[in-house]
Design a binder for these strands. Sequence first.
DNA 1: ACTGCACGATCGTGAAAAGCGATGATTTCC
DNA 2: GGAAATCATCGCTTTTCACGATCGTGCAGT
Lengths: 298, 298
Amino acid sequence: MRDVELRHLAAFVAIAEEGSFGRAATRLGYTQSTVSQQVAALEKAVGGPVLDRPGGPRPARVTPLGAVVLERGRDLLSRSAALGDAVERFKAGDGRIDIGTFQSVSSVILPTVIRRLRDEHPGCDIRLSEEEPDTPQIGQLDLLFYDGRVAGDVERVKLLDDPYLLVAGAGDFPEGPVRLARLDRAPMVAWPLDCDQPEMEEALARGGAHPRIVFRTAVNDALLSMVRAGLGCAILPWLAVRGANVETDPALSIHELRPALPAREIYLHWPAGRTLSPLATRAIEIAVDVAAEVGESS
Amino acid sequence: MRDVELRHLAAFVAIAEEGSFGRAATRLGYTQSTVSQQVAALEKAVGGPVLDRPGGPRPARVTPLGAVVLERGRDLLSRSAALGDAVERFKAGDGRIDIGTFQSVSSVILPTVIRRLRDEHPGCDIRLSEEEPDTPQIGQLDLLFYDGRVAGDVERVKLLDDPYLLVAGAGDFPEGPVRLARLDRAPMVAWPLDCDQPEMEEALARGGAHPRIVFRTAVNDALLSMVRAGLGCAILPWLAVRGANVETDPALSIHELRPALPAREIYLHWPAGRTLSPLATRAIEIAVDVAAEVGESS
DNA sequence: ACTGCACGATCGTGAAAAGCGATGATTTCC
DNA sequence: GGAAATCATCGCTTTTCACGATCGTGCAGT
């Protein structure tokens, strides 16, 4: 009782429905003799006849054993078709994709990427997770946005350089660039010390600026509200500034820094050495495009 | 996207579980190169890679596309195994059998047949139907007991001759055979006129006996109660007499008839020209055996 | 009874594939 | 820099697949 072939079952089902080997052959695009041999193979596989051939123009009928095979065979064939459909849908871009993001990273880029991805593949299942492990890991994610390089067996592409800008109350500083030294001992609000923040503050120190951090939060809106309230100024990456519509806020002013701080680098990571899903491949392309568009408007 | 072969899926699933082509090959009894080619065929069929081969001793990993194929493939394989199981169970004698019986026919034989069948095949599904069409038909039945020959495209075997006996009140007749002529004008109880009854009464008439039928019912116990009550005597087939334990009833006596009436013939029918299920085949054998045992004790 | 007629089985053939063993390329570990 | 493990690939034989042609068979129409 070894291998039943799907093709044999298909022939058998066709015969059961058509009532004749010849018509089944026509339906399947085979020859009558081929169908006959397929049934013979199936009968050998199951160890008994599945069809009664009354002879003459009378239709073939399934035997009791054939009824058992027919029921299960139909099921098997429909599952096989389901497999084909699933593969087709997958290749068309449907399916699931798990994307990781951290902190305030890509509050500008990611929504656009997701919007375009959903527009292209309405059936896809996009899952976002915003985690904060000490060491960011790719884990089971398909894609991971991060402002820096993630360790591990990953490939990455740099989406853009995200320069730091000074956000202050309107009138606090004269328009135009601000020298770093002017920020020494100045009151500031800032992000918490995870994320890229420590590197940024070290760079500030190297430039001679040792600001007094009077408030820390990861929520950009809260930071900006504090700046508006006169608690202090803030140094934020350009993306965060842009995402909060700071440019149009009359209570705030934006200044470049001199010398400039090393820009934050936004990377997109994915597991190395693995075949990516079409969805993930496309998402990377879209992310690069979006980053380029965002970057050239700076 | 050609036809996926079950054997290719089996190889793929084995690799996914073993993590290596070679171990999968060992498990399946193939060579490593064969398994490699099976996966290649599968990948050609689905139109993309289903496994990442990191190279070296690192285990193979399924790709996103492979995950889709794996999920459905496992399902397909388990269904295939289910087909095999179902066939095995069927050939072992499990499965369904529809048996038809009519009237009081085989109140002795049929229960024994069913008991033995159930003892041999505890998992089988035996369905009895007792119908009474004007013209008995095999219909969708696998087996049909009937006291006479059923018309249609059927095969049959005669299980036994069932001679008619006279059942009377104790002392109504002297012990031993009774001449038919003595029953002329005698009060009798009898079966209704369907079934084999008309033929029997004609035979009585040809023997010169024109009894007065004072009560008709198909229920044997009711007939015998009437005989005990002195309403009249009854002519019943030997099987019916035996089934009701008349022999040990001191209020009743049993007599052969002279000349004997033509015996009722009990036939077992099944559809002609169709392959029978193992269960039906065995049921026929058992029925013949049981009929022989019953017959030789007469 | 004879003859079409439709149906399925069977045979021979060429092409495709399954499976095997051996060999090669690649990567990790020591 | 090997040793070991892994998978791909090549040549080869055996099996299977599919086809066309032919044959046997039961039914129906003459």
